[in-house]
């Protein structure tokens, strides 16, 4: 029976709360809270992606596009129009949902390779738009001067404050997603993964559920994009390229896409790999990513969170 235990979530929440204080006392990891903000932003995307790919079985290789849409909507509306960042964030999510519906309705009729390639093509097209619509997006130079976030006069202007903001949202998304998974909707999504024919014979409106989960993943990615833009105060298209979509794939494959926990583990690891542990390889880190992705696919089809299951299997024998 699929039941996600509460204790690990509470433990994880406590860890997130105390982590900046621990990191603050150890100079070697003093910059980790900053990295954890990025990890949190990636977690938001991978949580949605895990529901979409791991549970519902729908491949998306264009998730960077929704991340970019969130970031660019926030950047353009705050910089060009001076609107409130929170309002822009919501607009970003609405636009991302609308795009997800437009792209999702025809795409999600496709399966397997076709769906993968359609989402891949969509992601690249959006990336090209970011580069070419210079008037709005600043082209390859991007947009700078994006304002930070504040709430009722409270400025999220330090790493610590932003850290708690991001992780609060990650936990909200995490718990929401877990609730969905353990409900009628979650069962419907997992059913679709295995057999669309049997699901619809059970009364599951397959296309509607696919669109819903696609939109949900787009909303989370868009939110992550807005948080990214307001944190760095600067964006350019290269953040939202094809390789980022592949990096997201690496995150959920490495963590394990059949469990939401995998999304979190993967986002963490890849964040620290790319910002900290792979510095030695410089730009050749891409080879390391490729090797990791290949090894995980071959030896750990359920990702790192699948390891306990494998170990249990050994003992049972």
């Amino acid at each position: 029976m699929l039941r996600i235990r509460k204790l690990p979530i509470i433990g994880f929440a406590l860890f997130i709360i105390v982590f900046p204080w621990i990191a603050g006392t150890i100079p070697a990891i003093g910059n980790y809270p900053d990295l954890m903000i990025f990890a949190g932003i990636y977690c938001l995307i991978t949580i949605g992606l895990s529901l979409l790919m791991g549970y519902a079985g729908q491949i998306s290789l264009g998730q960077a596009a929704f991340y970019g849409i969130g970031a660019y909507v926030s950047a353009i509306l705050t910089v060009h129009f001076g609107l409130s960042p929170w309002f822009c964030m919501v607009i970003g999510m609405l636009i991302a949902s609308a795009v997800a519906v437009l792209v999702g309705v025809p795409s999600l009729k496709l399966r397997g390779h076709y769906l993968a390639m359609a989402t891949l093509a969509f992601g690249i097209i959006v990336f090209i738009v970011f580069n070419e619509e210079i008037e709005w997006t600043g082209g390859p130079d991007g947009i700078s001067g994006i304002p930070g976030l504040s709430l009722f006069g409270f400025e999220f202007d330090t790493v610590l404050k932003y850290y708690y903001l991001v992780w609060f949202l990650v936990f909200a998304a995490f718990i929401f997603t877990i609730n969905v998974i353990q409900s009628r909707s979650g069962r419907a999504l997992r059913a679709i993964h295995i057999s669309e024919a049997a699901s619809s014979a059970m009364g599951v409106n397959v296309s509607r559920f696919k669109i819903m989960v696609f939109v949900y993943s787009a909303i989370l990615a868009s939110l992550a994009g807005s948080l990214y833009a307001h944190y760095l105060n600067f964006i350019n298209p290269s953040t939202f390229d094809l390789f980022f979509s592949i990096k997201l794939l690496i995150m959920i494959a490495l963590g394990g896409m059949h469990e939401v926990w995998g999304a979190i583990v993967g986002a963490f690891l890849v964040t620290f790999l790319s910002f900290e542990w792979l510095h030695f390889f410089e730009e050749f880190e891409v080879i390391v990513y490729g090797i990791i992705l290949l090894l995980v696919t071959i030896f750990l089809p359920h990702g790192l969170v699948g390891i306990p299951g494998i170990v249990k299997g050994w003992f049972r024998r």
Binding site: S183, R184, S185, R187, R190, S195, M202, G203
Partner: peptide, 23 residues
Amino acid sequence: ELFTNMSVLENVMVGCHTRTRSS
């Protein structure tokens, strides 16, 4: 065509999908 990723009970629970509503 059972849902092989689910328990016996959950398979039947998917069957209850039509007769229930929750968004």
